[in-house]
Amino acid sequence: MSIDRAAVTHIARLARLRITESDKEKLAGELSDIMNWIEQLQEVETATTQPMSSVIEMALKMRPDIVDDGGKADDVLANASETADGHYVTNKVIE
């Protein structure tokens, strides 16, 4: 599986990573090498195998549907780069 510059551009956009034009070529080569190496998985017979959903067999625990924590808006916002009136501040998203 070869990953070309166009694919790198597409994946980078999906991942919200800005990659410089000069890095795209290098990354296309590295990702192609890695994916070619991973390709050997296709040799494994899995026609009747279920995909793993939990590595340890366990029943997820239930808990009462009650609020037991909260009221910590200041803590939540403490690490934000910009806040106003108890909110995060982002770039304008609605024109």
């Binding site: 991973i38 998985l41 296709q42 494994v44 899995t46 195998t49 279920q50 995909p51 793993m52 959903s53 590595v55």
Partner: peptide, 14 residues
């Protein structure tokens, strides 16, 4: 082709 296949291989490894 990749993620689902890998999760099946992972089942077989376990």
């Amino acid at each position: 082709a990749y993620y689902l296949k890998a999760q099946k291989v992972r089942t077989r490894i376990a």
